[in-house]
Nucleic acid binder design. Structure first.
Length: 574
DNA sequence: GCCGTTTTCGGCCCGACTGTTTTCAGTCG
């Protein structure tokens, strides 16, 4: 079993205990252990051999034994015993908005509701209103929510690249300078998590109720879930849930901190506060003894008051950032302003939309010192890959442009296909004439792990190769990562001095945050590129930088923070 | 079930909103 499978079983265990009405702290213990295992970098099997399982936060004696059992047998007794007492599809019911485990349990024991169909039937036949503690309103809400659930299926999480633009669109709409002075995106979007469950917004207003009213009346609101005096919640277009909290200026920082999360980060902060005799909530810090409330207009002050260095949102996952902040050891993370050029860019010579010149001028306007034009190689027919002859013409054109354009250096490059057997699409004689060689897997993506790993490692052995682009090949909602042994590939990258890309395209984010952290800790250099096919796509750099920041990446870890001179030295070109 | 800068037992983060309630449980984030 791998880490994800173990975590899944622990989550299911928690879920079943919850359904049964078990002690809530026991349930939380299972969830906490599962969360930490999910985020773990090391393989549980390896940790188990080293007898190191108990060092995982949230894993004590009992859960440690269950993990060992799982690694040996693929499951554990307590889980199997409980599983048989619970209807199989019960999660369909708790997935319905407003129904949690306790209500699901009531529906099951009182009405025999076992799945979504049964729930719909019970609501339509007005049987729900007869349960003590439930009423007509509840029944109506269940009916609406269950029908929506039935129509859409389980939507789950949204890619950041979908959620962030929607969040920005809503923010722009709402800020009018009078009723609503400021809107900030919080939650997992602000932490640049690669997928998000919903959109969390916070806003400043002196008239909270009117502001919430305006929020629920926006265009594209499909349904209002909640409408209170400080909080509103709606279903917006694309069926994404949007939550809005409103405060006055003086506690804006406290609220922003609270709603940025993560949950684990906040829980730990509150415990630190309690140890200092302070009580932390979205309204700021409160002295437990005197009851004096201290709201903060900026997050920095609140962290300072807790004796902590400011922690950037991307790090707030309870993965050691709080301990680092106590010792003032949070590093200066990479920022968009550190990026001095883009090393993976397409033009209309292959599947890009613009000329090389247009791309170069757009990059110059962003303040970049250099840009590598890396059009596709010949075997990428769909992407109009360049034949060897066209590639040489491409190099000539770039030479001429460099002679005529000031203020930016265009590097001649390629995004060369790694063929199924690991050889490259162009011969060494051609590759050595280029300034920069980016390689990537495009075709034959269904290979087994052993073949794919060998294929990529073989490509990395080539002395002319500089960068491996979008290493895992995953695309949100379209393609899973290749079957491959990432550890071996990283070891090869390290050995042969190759750079791994963080591809900033919101469909990719590849390497992702976890792999980027792994690479950085091994000492592998990274490149944060956009893979832009038109000038507007240069703006995607923020996704790559956000992903890198989640991995604690510093400017020195990234080759395209080098200035032109240093970069040329690295590439061995004049 | 986990955990310890008051604790190896007795705590365990905090608050808004809703519905069905005369004081609160369940859900959600």
């Amino acid at each position: 079993m791998d880490n994800a499978e173990v975590a899944k079983l622990l989550y299911e265990m928690a879920y079943m205990l919850e359904f049964k009405g078990e002690n809530v702290f026991k349930i939380k213990a299972y969830q906490k252990a599962a969360r930490h295992i999910e985020e773990l970098e090391e393989d549980l099997n390896v940790l188990c051999k080293k007898d190191d399982l108990a060092h995982i936060p949230g894993v004590g004696e009992a859960i440690e034994a269950k993990i060992k059992e799982m690694l040996e047998t693929g499951t554990f007794m307590a889980y199997e015993e409980l599983r048989h007492t619970i209807p199989e599809k019960i999660e369909e019911i708790t997935a319905v908005q407003g129904i949690g485990p306790r209500t699901a349990y009531l529906l099951y024991t009182k009405l025999g509701v076992k799945d979504l169909k049964g729930l719909l039937r019970a609501a339509e036949e007005h049987r729900i209103r007869r349960i003590p503690g439930m009423g007509v309103k509840m029944e109506e809400n269940v009916l609406i929510a269950a029908k929506r659930q039935f129509a859409e299926g389980n939507t789950g999480r949204f890619p950041l690249g979908l959620a962030l633009p929607i969040a920005e669109e809503i923010s722009r709409k709402l800020v009018d300078g009078e009723l609503i002075r400021e809107v900030q995106i919080a939650g997992s979007i602000r932490r640049w998590k690669e997928t998000v469950g919903d959109i969390d917004l916070i806003a400043c207003s002196n008239e909270p109720e009117r502001a919430i009213e305006a929020f629920t009346l926006m265009d594209n609101v499909q349904e209002i879930l909640e409408k209170g005096t400080t909080k509103g919640s709606v279903i917006y277009k694309e069926h994404i849930q949007v939550d809005m909290r409103i405060v006055k200026d003086d506690s804006f920082g406290s609220l922003l901190q609270h709603f940025t999360g993560s949950k684990d980060h906040n829980v730990k902060l509150r415990n630190i506060a309690l140890a200092k005799g302070l009580h932390l909530s979205e309204y700021g810090l409160k002295n437990v003894e005197t009851g004096e409330q201290m709201p903060f207009s900026a997050e920095e002050q609140q962290y300072e008051m807790l004796g902590l260095q400011f922690i950037p949102p991307e790090l707030r996952e309870d993965r050691g950032e709080i301990e680092a902040a106590m010792q003032r050891k949070i590093p200066r993370l990479i920022e968009i302003g550190d990026i001095k050029g883009d090393l993976h860019v397409h033009s209309n010579w292959s599947d890009g939309r613009n000329t090389i010149k247009e791309m170069a001028l757009a990059a110059r306007a962003l303040g970049y010192e250099y840009i590598a034009i890396t059009d596709h190689s010949g075997s990428s027919r769909i992407a109009s890959g360049l034949s060897e002859k066209r590639l040489m013409e491409h190099v000539k054109e770039i030479e001429q442009l460099n002679a005529s354009i000031d203020g930016i250096r265009i590097l001649s490059g390629t995004e060369c296909d790694i063929l199924p057997n690991g050889t490259l699409d162009y011969g060494d004689d051609l590759l050595e004439q280029l300034d920069i060689v980016v390689v990537a897997v495009h075709g034959a993506v269904e290979q087994d792990s052993k073949t794919m790993t060998k294929r990529i490692v073989t490509a990395l052995e080539n002395e002319h190769v500089h960068i491996l682009a979008h290493p895992t090949g995953r695309k949100f909602g379209k393609r899973l990562p290749f079957e491959m042994d990432m550890k071996k590939i990283m070891e090869a990258a390290l050995e042969f001095g190759k750079v791994l890309e963080i591809n900033s395209s919101p469909q990719r984010l590849d390497l992702n945050g976890n792999y980027a952290m792994m690479a950085m800790e091994m000492g592998i250099k990274l490149a944060i590129n956009t893979d832009a096919h038109s000038p507007d796509q240069f703006a995607n750099i923020r996704y790559g930088v956000g992903t890198a920041r989640r991995a604690w990446v510093k400017p020195a870890d990234v080759v395209n923070t080098l200035d032109l001179k240093e970069l040329c030295k690295l590439l061995g070109i004049p």
